[in-house]
């Protein structure tokens, strides 16, 4: 761990005590309620070279997702399904303690959690992404770049990925003499639901939604839960060394579903109107 990283992670004692005292009273440093999320801003179609794109700011956390659509060979065990892959990269410009180089375990966990939410919710109708059964299918790559870190990258990245996919234009390819030809026409990408993740952190015995970087650096643990439009839970990730009681988990499920619905309507509005 570099020195820079160490210094950033250490929260001043004064600050830590102040945060803990407030949380017990049901308050937070930035004035939010315990389950209140930060202002969410979504702009779509910001990268013209991508088939779909979105910039999401959640408080001071800022991420961009870009979708590129191409063709490829289907996986051997799934000949009748298109391919969707989601990646995430924490750019070194995102904070003083992110460094260039191959992704570390945190970045890999982030990418996998975002991917899992979209995959397991079956957001993309992969059966509609087949050009020639078993041979040629659509390949959708979602790449998320983290531009500024202020906590809760999981949710910001997942909102950006979902918004980019909701606005992605699927090129109309056709097969001519065994070759893929771009017709220069496009249709919306076939989607079935909007997955929304909500991350809750535990500090002491208090559960809060959408933690900031400062809150994350003193938290005991976190749970990221993704729900679909029907209110089903479709992906969960617990992180950090802290533990949760069944009661706390039930509280998290309830909150995630209500918060998820609020956020889903924001995503819907943003992707229909271009931005909010």
């Amino acid at each position: 761990m570099s020195h820079q990283k160490k210094s950033n992670v250490i929260v001043e004692h004064l600050r830590r005590i102040q945060m803990q005292e407030l949380l017990v009273k049901g308050e937070r440093l930035d004035g939010r309620g315990l389950t209140e999320t930060r202002p969410l801003k979504i702009e779509t179609n910001i990268i013209q070279k991508a088939n779909g794109s979105a910039r999401v700011t959640l408080g001071n956390t800022q991420v961009i997702a870009g979708v590129k659509i191409d063709t490829g060979e289907p996986y051997g065990d799934r000949p009748n399904e298109g391919i969707m892959i989601c990646g995430a990269e924490v750019l070194p410009l995102a904070s003083a303690y992110s460094e260039p180089g191959p992704p570390d375990e945190d970045a890999i966990e982030l990418a996998r959690v975002v991917d899992r939410g979209i995959r397991e919710s079956e957001m993309i109708d992969v059966n509609k992404l087949v050009l020639t059964k078993g041979k040629v299918v659509y390949k959708i790559s979602v790449d998320v770049s983290i531009l500024n870190i202020d906590g809760n990258l999981f949710d910001a990245a997942s909102y950006a990925a979902a918004s980019a996919l909701l606005t992605a234009k699927l090129p109309k390819f056709k097969i001519e003499d065994g070759k893929v030809v771009d017709t220069n026409e496009s249709t919306p990408t076939p989607t079935r639901t909007i997955p929304v993740s909500v991350t809750m952190a535990k500090i002491g015995d208090v559960i809060i939604a959408d933690p900031t970087h400062e809150e994350e650096s003193i938290m005991d643990g976190r749970v990221t839960m993704t729900t679909d439009a029907e209110g089903n839970v479709c992906a969960v990730q617990k992180g950090g060394a802290g533990t949760f009681t069944v009661e706390q988990i039930n509280h998290i499920v309830e909150t995630t579903i209500t918060k998820g619905n609020e956020i889903r309507s924001i995503l819907k509005k943003a992707t229909e109107n271009g931005s909010i």
């Binding site: 990268i47 070279k49 991508a50 794109s53 961009i64 870009g66 979708v67 590129k68 191409d70 990646g87 750019l91 260039p100 790559s141 790449d143 770049s145």
Partner: peptide, 10 residues
């Protein structure tokens, strides 16, 4: 550094 979606082909 270039983002994966910054160019025509990923």
């Amino acid at each position: 550094h270039m983002a994966p979606y910054s160019v025509d082909e990923r």
